[in-house]
């Protein structure tokens, strides 16, 4: 009796399958939705940041998160809580000190990395669908090796979340309106997103070898871990709340509609 089994390790060729992928489901849908969603949000945010207008409602003290803290000469009166050290220039966002860090925080975020590597860079577009590139070095060299600095962007994001919380607190002194509620929901979601960060989970306790020696940090790690499983949802929710907050305040500042007041 003969056999056709070849020596293991003898043949080194992969199975000759002509099709690049044999997936029959709509694998392209998720990257497409991500592409459209992120693309639309970035477009909206860019337009808004360089609009240099309609960012503050003086009577209720609403300041949009896209312009917080407002530090150029364009910021007048109570909008400029931190002074105005920068000149007004059309290429300079009003929140020039914070927006770059927020951008870095989201760019280096472990969830967004997955999202844009798949949807924008097609590396890979979906599981078991071929990479759109000839060679691949991952995050081993410049510039992607700087993804490792995510924790520093996280530290910055914590400080910025404190500033956003302060904005919501200050807006509270005029009473209560729908704007206040929107600001608070946005701030709470921003905190949830920031604290659910993978770097935060590592800093909180993930780096420890013995949880039993650090019971408080273990509890904090457990809390962050629970949030962390929702990191993707929170990433999208905060994009939504940020855009909504900004749009609402833009609408109030431009007099498209009036704030729905509950108290005062």
């Amino acid at each position: 009796m003969t056999t056709t089994a070849t020596t293991p390790g003898g043949g080194k060729a992969r199975a000759a399958i002509a099709a690049r992928t044999l997936r029959t489901d709509r694998w392209w849908l998720a990257p497409l939705v991500t592409f459209i969603g992120l693309g639309a949000w970035v477009t909206y945010a860019t337009v808004r940041v360089f609009m240099h207008d309609w960012f503050f409602v003086p009577e209720y003290h609403y300041l949009t998160p896209f312009y917080s803290p407002c530090i150029t000469d364009l910021c007048t009166g109570e909008a400029a809580m931190f002074g105005t050290p920068l000149p007004s220039f059309f290429l300079l966002p009003e929140a020039a000190f914070t927006l770059p860090f927020l951008l870095l925080f989201r760019l280096t975020c472990y969830y967004y990395r997955k999202a844009y590597y798949r949807a924008f860079w097609l590396s890979p577009p979906a599981c078991a669908v071929p990479d759109g590139h000839k060679s691949y070095s991952g995050e081993t060299r410049f510039p992607l090796i700087f993804q490792n600095a995510h924790r520093y962007a996280f530290y910055a994001a914590v400080i910025i979340s404190v500033i956003n919380t302060w904005d919501a607190v200050v807006a509270q002194k005029t009473g209560l309106g729908l704007g206040n509620i929107i600001l608070w929901v946005n701030v709470i979601m921003l905190w949830a997103y920031t604290l659910s960060c993978h770097s935060c989970r590592h800093i909180a306790g993930g780096r420890l070898k013995h949880f039993s020696k650090h019971p408080v940090r273990y509890r904090f790690w457990t809390f962050v871990s629970k949030l962390n499983t929702r990191h993707m949802q929170l990433a999208w929710i905060t994009l939504g709340t940020l855009a909504l907050t900004d749009f609402y305040i833009m609408g109030l500042a431009a007099d498209w509609f009036n704030d729905l007041r509950i108290i005062n």
Partner: peptide
Amino acid sequence: ITITPIRTFPVIRDLVTDVS
């Protein structure tokens, strides 16, 4: 329903691959 061997590793025969 299309059934193929796993792609990343060299094939030995049919659905059996060399995962060494």
